[in-house]
Each structure stands twice: as C-alpha cells, then as structure tokens.
C-alpha cells in the first residue's frame, strides 16, 4: 500500500517534471522550427546551440515584476492563470505514456490514473482551460483582454461539439472510453487513423482550436488584440499562460497519438515509451508547421466553420461508423 502511494507520488512528480521540461523544450523546438520555416536560424546563442534559451526565459519570467492593473478584480485576476495551468497539467494524468511495466513485483501503468471514462475526463479537464482565458480576460479590466476572453468563449462553443463527436467513432470501434483500452484495441484492430480518417482530421483541427494556436489563435490574436486575454499579465502569471498553451499542445498531441496512432505501440526495437514520445514530437511538428503556414480565421467564420462544416461531417461519419460497427451495413 505504502509502496503504491510512493510509486504514485513519484509518478506525479515525474509527470510534472516531464511536462515542464517538455514545455520549455517544445517552445524552443517551435522557435527553432519557425526559424527554419522562415529562412532564419532561431535562438542559438544562449547556451550551446541555444539549448539554455528556455532556462533563461523561465528564470527571467520569475524575476520579472508582477503587475496588476489598478481596476482589476484582484482575486479572479490571480486565479485565472492558475486555472489555465491546472487544466493543462491535469489532463495528462489519464494519458498512458507506455505499456505497463513490471518493477519490484508491482505492475506500474504509465499514467497517474486509469479511470474507465478516461477520455471523458480528459475532455472535461481540458475544457476547463477556457475558464482561465475567459476569466483572465475579464478580470484584467482591459478592453483588448475582454475581447480576447469573449472570443475564447465563442471559439469553444464552435468546436467542442465537433471535437466530441469526432472521437465517438473511436469509442464505438474500441468499445471503451478507457484510454489504455483504446490503445489495446488498436493493437488488435490496427491504428484507428485510417478507418477514422475524417474524424481524425476533424480532431486535428479542433485540437489546434483547443490550444488556441494559429489559425485559431483568436483569443490571443497578436496583430488584432495586442496580446489578447493576457495583455495585462506580466512575469510568472503570464508565464503560466504560456505554460498552459504549450502543455496543451503536448496534451493534444498525446490524445491524437493515443486515439488514432496507437499510443505507445510500435516495432519492438524501441521501448514503447520512446515510440509514444516520437509520435508526440511528430504531432507537435505538425502543429508548428500549420502555424507557420496558415493565416488566422475571423471569428464569425470560425463559428460557421465549426457549426456548418465540422459538426455535420463529424455527425454523419459517426452515424456511418455506428451503422458499420453494429453490423447494419
């Protein structure tokens, strides 16, 4: 019992460490990749090959003065980035990083929790993140921030339904909402991205929207809203929003990998956990690639895109999958 608790605590600490490190180096990876997409070099001066750039950035953020506008709602202003950070970090608790390993007579699954409704929990937690944005935008007492917050709400109601529907096919095929179960089902049936190609693309699109990245970076929309919902945030609180955005990206990449690309599955010459991370990095690369290629949507266009295109397609494909799985077809 005590051993299990110790293992759990170690796992939690490890996960947080991995995510924070992952955040820092995802950011560096993005900056270097953007550099290469744009014929530049990107950060390469701080530390060997620029490897210490994220460390310097993080330290600087901590040392920066923490400001609050005079008219801000102080409690909500302080709470909002915490919500964003918490929501981003907690989703990863249910995503399995690899096949269960056996150590000291214990079977240790490589996730913090393995509930039967893991997928629902992941969705619920990641949806919480938008509260961080909306509340932060509202509490800042800044018109640009407020518009950013409003855009975030408009955005979430446009894509969340399509996102939910797009994974229904996966649930029907794997007969479970447990993420480990979904991975194991893919071991038997093959990876789901091919049979579920349309839902996969829809999920990919909505995952970008969930992370508020180009072309769906409306709440932040630098060229329109200065810095959007976090315009008034400085120092660590601002950093927390940054952390949330990048960890969300890692998380959504993890979900894509788990739901459509067989999670940790892969040829046995590499351990499962390595396969998982390779796939996640490829997904992150695609995120960055899209950011470098596409302009931003206008928010009414985004809403009609979500409701009039993504949702009907997701629904039709879901009905088709249901008919196929139940043997009607």
């Amino acid at each position: 019992m005590i051993l299990e608790i110790v293992v759990l605590v170690v796992k939690i600490l490890l996960l947080v460490a991995i995510l924070m490190g992952g955040f820092a180096y995802t950011m560096l990876l993005e900056r270097r990749l953007l550099g290469f997409f744009q014929l530049r070099l990107g950060p390469n001066r701080v530390g060997p090959g620029g490897m210490l750039q994220p460390i310097a950035d993080a330290l600087k953020m901590m040392l920066k003065e923490d400001m609050m506008p005079a008219g801000a709602d102080s409690f909500v202003y302080r709470l909002a980035p915490v919500i964003a950070g918490f929501a981003a970090l907690s989703v990863d608790a249910v995503i399995p990083f690899g096949a269960p390993i056996h150590l000291l007579g214990l079977t240790i699954s490589l996730d913090i929790a393995n509930p039967s409704i893991g997928l629902l929990l992941a969705f619920a937690l990641s949806s919480l993140g938008v509260y961080g944005i909306v509340l932060g935008g509202w509490a800042s007492q800044n018109k640009y921030s407020l518009l950013g917050g409003i855009r975030a709400t408009a955005q979430i109601i446009s894509y969340e339904l399509a996102m939910g529907l797009s994974v229904m096919g996966v649930l029907l095929m794997s007969h479970t909402a447990n993420l480990e179960g979904i991975v194991l089902a893919q071991k038997a049936q093959g990876w789901f991205w091919l049979p579920q190609i349309v839902p996969f693309l829809i999920f990919m699109v909505t995952a970008i929207a969930e992370t508020n990245r180009t072309p769906f970076d409306l709440p932040e929309a630098e060229s329109e809203l200065v810095a959007g919902y976090h315009t008034e945030y400085s120092g660590m609180r601002f950093a927390l929003y940054y952390v949330a955005e990048y960890i969300n990206m890692i998380t959504q990449s993890g979900l894509i990998v788990t739901l459509f690309f067989g999670g940790w599955l892969g040829p046995s010459f590499l351990p499962p956990i390595i396969w998982y991370f390779i796939k996640v990095i490829i997904a992150i690369f695609v995120f960055v690639w899209i950011r470098a290629t596409l302009p931003r949507f206008r928010y009414d266009k985004l809403m009609s895109f979500g409701w009039k295109i993504l949702l009907p397609i997701a629904f039709l494909y879901f009905v088709g999958t249901a008919a196929f799985v139940s043997g009607v077809l």
Binding site: R31, G35, R40, L41, G42, P43, N44, R45, V46, G50, Q53, A56, D57
Partner: peptide, 10 residues
Amino acid sequence: YDVGRFGSEV
C-alpha cells in the same frame, strides 16, 4: 540578420 538568434525574436 535574425535577432531571434539572441532569443529576442519574441
């Protein structure tokens, strides 16, 4: 010139 090399492209 890429000021990003110095980490200042943000």
